[in-house]
Simulated assay, not measured.
Amino acid sequence: MPVITVPQEFNEEDLYVDLEPMFGHRLFLKCEGFNFAGSIKLKAATEMVESAERSGTLTRDSILVESSSGNLGVALSMIAASKGYPFICVTDSRCNLSTRLMMEALGSQVHVVSEEKGAGGLLGARLDYLRGLCASDDRYVWLSQYTNADNWRAHYFRTAPAIAHSFPQLDVLFIGVGTTGTLMGCARWFRGWHRPVRIVAVDSVGSAIFGDPPGRRMIPGLGMSMRPPLLDETYVDEAVRVVEADTIRTCRHLAKRGFLFGGSTGTVVSGAMSWLARHDTDGLTPVAIAPDLGERYLDTIYQTNWVQALYGDDALAAPAGSEAGSARGTAP
Score class of each variant (00 low, 15 high):
residue 276 L to E: 13
residue 7 P to H: 02
residue 315 A to E: 13
residue 206 G to I: 06
residue 113 V to G: 04
residue 130 L to D: 15
residue 210 F to I: 05
residue 20 E to Y: 02
residue 155 H to E: 10
residue 254 L to F: 04
residue 27 L to V: 00
residue 17 V to W: 07
residue 319 P to W: 06
residue 278 R to I: 00
residue 106 L to C: 11
residue 241 R to E: 15
residue 188 R to Q: 12
residue 105 A to I: 02
residue 12 E to T: 04
residue 110 V to N: 11
residue 329 G to V: 13
residue 272 A to M: 05
residue 70 G to Y: 05
residue 191 R to P: 02
residue 56 G to D: 07
residue 319 P to S: 00
residue 65 V to E: 09
residue 191 R to L: 04
residue 76 L to W: 12
residue 264 S to W: 07
residue 174 F to Q: 12
residue 202 V to L: 12
residue 48 M to L: 14
residue 283 G to I: 03
residue 129 Y to L: 15
residue 99 T to P: 04
residue 249 R to I: 03
residue 154 A to T: 06
residue 327 A to R: 12
residue 324 A to D: 05
residue 270 S to W: 06
residue 133 L to F: 09
residue 51 S to F: 07
residue 168 P to E: 02
residue 219 I to D: 08
residue 257 R to K: 15
residue 236 V to L: 01
residue 129 Y to S: 10
residue 174 F to T: 01
residue 76 L to D: 10
residue 205 V to A: 13
residue 12 E to C: 07
residue 323 E to Y: 04
residue 51 S to P: 01
residue 234 T to Q: 15
residue 183 L to K: 05
residue 232 D to A: 11
residue 29 L to H: 01
residue 211 G to H: 01
residue 256 K to S: 15
residue 301 I to K: 10
residue 260 L to E: 06
residue 114 S to C: 06
residue 234 T to A: 14
residue 180 T to N: 04
residue 246 D to K: 01
residue 218 M to F: 08
residue 264 S to I: 02
residue 18 D to R: 05
residue 73 G to M: 09
residue 94 R to D: 00
residue 126 R to F: 05
residue 129 Y to N: 11
residue 49 V to G: 08
residue 13 E to N: 06
residue 315 A to M: 09
residue 145 Q to I: 02
residue 153 R to N: 08
residue 35 N to V: 02
residue 165 H to W: 01
residue 327 A to D: 10
residue 36 F to C: 04
residue 259 F to A: 03
residue 74 V to K: 06
residue 230 L to V: 03
residue 49 V to E: 09
residue 209 I to R: 05
residue 184 M to P: 09
residue 33 G to R: 13
residue 293 L to C: 13
residue 319 P to N: 10
residue 323 E to M: 04
residue 306 W to L: 07
residue 197 V to T: 08
residue 228 P to E: 08
residue 7 P to L: 02
residue 202 V to Q: 08
residue 24 G to M: 07
residue 110 V to M: 07
residue 299 D to M: 07
residue 322 S to P: 11
residue 170 L to P: 13
residue 32 E to R: 00
residue 48 M to V: 05
residue 244 E to F: 08
residue 87 F to A: 02
residue 133 L to T: 07
residue 309 A to E: 15
residue 10 F to K: 15
residue 8 Q to K: 03
